[in-house]
Design a protein around this nucleic acid. Sequence first.
DNA 1: TATTGTTATACTCTATAACTATA
DNA 2: TATAGTTATAGAGTATAACAATA
Lengths: 149, 149
Amino acid sequence: MITGTELGDLLGYQLQRAYLAAIEDVREALSPHGLTPAKLTALLLIRDNPGCDQTALGRALRVNRSSAMKIVNALAERGLIERRPGRDLRSNALHLTAHARSRIDAMLAAVRASDDRVTKLLSEGDRGTLLRLLTTIAPHEPKTGESDA
Amino acid sequence: MITGTELGDLLGYQLQRAYLAAIEDVREALSPHGLTPAKLTALLLIRDNPGCDQTALGRALRVNRSSAMKIVNALAERGLIERRPGRDLRSNALHLTAHARSRIDAMLAAVRASDDRVTKLLSEGDRGTLLRLLTTIAPHEPKTGESDA
DNA sequence: TATTGTTATACTCTATAACTATA
DNA sequence: TATAGTTATAGAGTATAACAATA
């Protein structure tokens, strides 16, 4: 196996390696549920913000309206969300279906089990520290706005 | 801005957010050098493993031979690496060009500056801790092997 | 038989741009 | 004029599958 001596000291590089390990694990963990990690994220955002529109969802996911629509379409096709009339005639209000509500706990359990596998070499304290440091790097704040046309 | 209450406690989710923040920054930092982060990683791996072949490079990058070739082609087209005769008539030995050697320090400086920007809210000690925890999650070991046909 | 490089092809994700219907 | 949703199209990155040359 070839390696890079200098690479290991680069924080961005280690961040990517850890991210790739985590995404691979969680993708596999969610595949029996028929969802990708990104689609579950969208589902959770809709659950926590019932009635939000597609544009706001896209902003939270950091994708543009066109990409947000593909995700919403996929979730709607699977019967996990529905588009209801929105605050005006242009916008949709997104809501979970009863079917999604009955399945979302199992999906979250799969994600938590994946988190545990990925961090199995860390102590409980280290996990908390890691979560804190990562949250410092990418806080939960509104960002610039969409770069749409 | 909509947010997910439960999302912030998921380590994989925070890992992704931090990774996306970092990759966006470093991609911009490297764009004046005409390289993506993945291509600089390949360049560093070749520098640290002169004479390696494309298959070994692909394994280190966790992509298959076909994808590795695209990266090698891109670096060769930019005059940063060259294919020399390898250990047998099937394989290439990859080497940096003098041109790459003259530029790689500036590229690394750009990456380190990006690392600093991304972690600007962390103390020096926190940066070391983060690097250690991330390395624990994804150690530098040989993995399974390529899933090629 | 297995391996290296290569090519062709397809799939996923995302972006840009334009259109429509509202506001 | 601006906004929400939609559609068509294109680009980047990756994967699979096959082939030729070599081992």
